[in-house]
């Protein structure tokens, strides 16, 4: 959870900077699904997630020629850019004054709770979306993106202890919201 290590994308990124189309495809195959998933789980909106992923990589292309190895891992840089774009969008959502509260999927149990597949997936998605943004961010970074605690804490600009607090509170809330499903899953 804590390793920083050398950058596995460094050589590939250099080839991207030289305009190698195969490197471009390889880098996109390797990193685009990951960044799209981050944005999707942060924003709970596939269209906005695509916009964030696209903007993140457009910025990456601008950086590719002048990338300085050793400053930061490229994957970390991508996460930072994508997270900031997600935060901007979440902030704008909060700033929008709405006549009615936004429609949200009901995270509670339904009469046919326990069925697998898409419905469970939607329940989990709704429960994740209902979390406070910082708790959701911590869970998405650590659980879904598989980042180490030091890396995730740095991205969130909090201490590791604070990160653990966010993770713990977030997971407790999810466990409560999905109690019927965790019993099934256990």
């Amino acid at each position: 959870m804590t390793s920083q290590g050398s950058d596995p994308d460094e050589a590939l990124l250099a080839d991207v900077g030289r305009g190698d189309p195969r490197a471009v495809r390889q880098l996109l195959d390797r990193r685009l699904p990951r960044i799209l998933a981050l944005a999707r789980r942060m924003l709970n909106d596939s269209g906005e997630a695509e916009d964030v992923a696209q903007e993140t990589f457009l910025r990456a292309w601008k950086q590719a020629r002048s990338w300085q190895p050793g400053a930061a891992r490229f994957d970390t840089w991508l996460h930072r850019v994508a997270l900031n774009l997600c935060r901007d969008r979440l902030r704008r959502r909060r700033d929008v004054v709405m006549a009615e509260p936004p429609e949200q999927a009901d995270p509670g149990p339904r009469p046919d709770a326990g069925v697998l597949g898409r419905e469970v997936s939607h329940r989990v998605e709704a429960a994740l979306a209902a979390l406070p943004a910082r708790q959701r961010e911590a869970i998405v970074l650590c659980h879904h993106q598989g980042l180490g605690n030091i890396e995730a804490a740095a991205l969130m600009q909090v201490s590791v202890e604070a990160l653990e607090g966010l993770l713990g509170r977030g997971r407790r809330a999810l466990k409560a919201a999905l109690a019927d499903l965790t019993r099934d899953a256990g």
Partner: peptide
Amino acid sequence: ALDRLLDLAPAGAV
């Protein structure tokens, strides 16, 4: 058990 549920959160397809 909660981990397994979290894994079901949609990731979106490219």
